[in-house]
């Protein structure tokens, strides 16, 4: 069921376990209403992929995910011919070939006769659909997530253009396939490299930053309901202070959640400098960052 308006998006995403800001809700609504892909950018761990999942849940659609990486090609993303199956079928129908060419007098005729049967071997039966073709040929509308599209090669990006603007793909042997139902496409990017203008032009752009304090508290309380309100608030304050330090990798929401989870497991009810120092490994992923936070502990927590 499609979203009705921006508030509807907000409500249903929250129900699906994702707390969106007004901006996120607006962009998601517009993308759905105009059937355009959304290009989501932002630092690692702010919930880009999670947003796509939540959209799938709230629209009650299946999610098809394609993880992009360097060297990803059409065969892995779109479709592949099943050679083994084709050969196996050839073997099995070998006897029938005599029936087809039995009546022919010359070799040319025989070849012509076989050529008419060609379609039997280049048909849907022998195509192995990969995520993109799956998304396009699915009879139910789906959510298609192209994760970390910036990691893919520029060639693949160019190949995506046809898909994203017209929702169709060309398979040389079978012709052009148009989307049965237009999928909701989400692309995520980590700013690993800049995407081409042509791709950007076809998308609605959304930048997700670290959430505001209240949103973050709400997210923690949603995901980890057992956590105490006080602890949650101090925890978020501490995380926000750590983010203000100039770290190699700032802790994101997923780290905040991990941290809250581990504090809960350790049955800690109050956040002190000692506790922070002991559990820092959960939030800092570099040794240098760890030391930096320890050194500036006074700024993190009073």
């Amino acid at each position: 069921m499609a979203y009705k308006n921006v508030s509807d998006v907000e409500k249903r995403l929250t129900e699906a376990g994702y707390i969106p800001s007004r901006e996120i809700a607006t962009v998601i609504f517009l993308a759905q209403a105009t059937q355009k892909p959304v290009l989501i950018e932002g630092p690692a761990g702010v919930g880009k992929t999670e947003l796509a999942k939540a959209v799938a849940r709230s629209l009650n659609r299946e999610m098809i995910r394609l993880q992009c990486y360097e060297g990803l090609d059409e065969a892995k993303a779109l479709y592949e011919w099943e050679y083994a199956k084709q050969l196996l079928y050839t073997q099995m129908v070998k006897e029938r070939i005599n029936d087809i060419i039995g009546s022919t007098a010359t070799l040319t005729e025989a070849v012509d006769q076989i050529a008419t049967q060609e379609d039997a071997f280049f048909s849907d039966r022998f195509i192995q659909p990969r995520p993109l073709l799956q998304a396009i040929s699915s009879s139910k509308p789906v959510v298609l997530l192209l994760d970390e599209v910036d990691k893919s090669d520029p060639e693949f990006e160019a190949f995506l253009l046809e898909l994203l603007s017209d929702f169709q793909v060309s398979i040389p042997e079978l012709g052009t396939r148009k989307a049965v139902r237009i999928p909701f496409v989400v692309l995520t990017s980590n700013n690993y490299r800049d995407m081409s203008d042509a791709l950007k032009r076809r998308c609605v752009h959304l930048y997700i930053d670290y959430p505001a304090r209240d949103t973050e508290i709400a997210i923690i309380r949603l995901k980890i309901p057992d956590i105490e309100e006080n602890l949650c608030a101090t925890l978020v304050d501490a995380i926000r202070n750590i983010r203000s330090l100039d770290l190699k990798k700032s802790p994101s929401i997923s780290e905040t959640l991990d941290w809250a989870q581990s504090l809960l497991a350790l049955q800690i009810s109050e956040l002190t400098q000692e506790v922070v120092s002991e559990t820092l490994n959960v939030i800092c992923k570099y040794q240098a960052d760890l030391e930096k936070v320890r050194k500036n502990m006074d700024r993190v927590i009073a």
Partner: peptide, 22 residues
């Protein structure tokens, strides 16, 4: 499609279309 009087929505719409990188 949106309510342009709500400034957050108005801003989000323009930002999503005009500014396509950080």
């Amino acid at each position: 499609l949106i309510n342009p009087v709500d400034e957050r929505e108005f801003h989000a719409l323009l930002a999503a279309n005009f500014a396509k990188s950080l």
